[in-house]
């Protein structure tokens, strides 16, 4: 190993101003090879066990792009987007209420968050579904009047149940974002004669977004998976459809794996989107942007080839 260092014997051809760049043999990480082997073996064992199980894997590709499954995927996505919309709008509203000087609005917001965060969302869904026990009719005067059971469709139950629950969580995220904006910003805005609401809308919220966006991306992915709960209120989203098909086609377990695969695909797509969204909001605040996965892979490959070429010359 000392051979490499001895190569500095010939200083004649290097300019005297700068010493030769260090070329040392890197430390060998044998632990990495060992752990890689163990991990691969474990993975192999799991895959083998599943392939030997009494599961008809062929059924999954057969149904993967089935029309009903695709409509279930569509409904899951629709529900995710709409519920997050309710969550974000409601969350900002609640956060502003919670931070307001008005003791009534801030207590109302506190109570809302306390209630919706404090009860399981599954219970909330079932309660919404059964609220007909309390309200027999829904009567909005001349606009709308119907029996509760007619009004509260599975879709509306799912939307309200998940959306209102999400608003409570988003409220806390938004509150953290609003609090992260320097007080001097509000002062400067007030000193210019801007009102509370204009200060909030024009100055504080745009700056709070940088803090709010990353955890919101997390919430979206969470919401995507949580929509599977609404199968209990008869809404035919992905999991419900997969279970229905499973019962009629005689491949119930296979359809669950299929649903799991679809959820993975969807969350992966959202994760990529979240990554680039965060990158976008990091602009201006950090001097150099984190590299994209492509750039990372490229850099890794380059350094790998550099290392092997360096090793080759040694």
């Amino acid at each position: 190993m000392t051979v490499d260092i001895d190569k500095t014997d010939g200083p004649a051809d290097t300019p005297p101003t700068r010493p030769e760049a260090i070329k040392a043999i890197p430390v060998r990480h044998y632990g990495r090879y060992v752990s890689a082997v163990i991990a691969l073996a474990a993975l192999g064992a799991i895959v083998y066990a599943f392939s030997q199980g009494r599961i008809n894997w062929g059924a999954i590709p057969d149904y993967f792009f089935n029309d009903r499954i695709l409509s279930g995927v569509g409904k899951t996505l629709l529900l995710t987007v709409l519920c997050m919309l309710i969550g974000v709008v409601g969350g900002i509203l609640l956060a502003v209420m919670r931070l307001s000087k008005n003791p009534v609005t801030s207590s109302v917001a506190w109570f809302y968050i306390w209630f919706f965060r404090g009860t399981p969302v599954l219970v909330q869904l079932i309660v919404w579904f059964n609220l007909g026990l309390v309200f027999e009719y829904i009567n909005l005067g001349p606009i709308y009047k119907d029996e509760w059971s007619q009004f509260m469709t599975p879709f509306l139950t799912a939307l309200l149940g998940l959306g209102l629950n999400e608003a409570a969580y988003m409220a806390e995220i938004c509150r953290a974002g609003l609090l992260s904006v320097d007080e001097g910003q509000t002062e400067a805005s007030h000193a210019l004669g801007m009102s509370h609401s204009k200060t909030l809308r024009r100055i504080v919220i745009p700056q709070a977004m940088r803090v709010i966006v990353p955890p919101t991306g997390n919430e979206v992915i969470n919401m995507l998976k949580t929509t599977s709960l609404v199968s209990v209120v008869q809404y035919s989203e992905l999991l419900r459809v997969a279970q229905d098909i499973g019962q009629t086609s005689g491949a119930p377990a296979e359809m669950l794996f299929l649903a799991a695969a679809w959820y993975l695909v969807l969350t992966s797509v959202f994760s990529v989107g979240q990554y680039y969204l965060e990158r976008y909001y990091a602009r201006g605040s950090s001097r150099s942007l984190p590299s994209t996965p492509f750039q990372k892979i490229k850099a890794n490959l380059l350094s790998l080839s550099n290392r092997s070429s360096a090793g080759g010359t040694a």
Binding site: Q185, A188, A191, L192
Partner: peptide, 20 residues
Amino acid sequence: VALKRRDIGMVFQRFNLFPH
């Protein structure tokens, strides 16, 4: 209060420009 502040300009030690 906001109406009265219109007529009074203020410059802060930490500038407090709107960064966005």
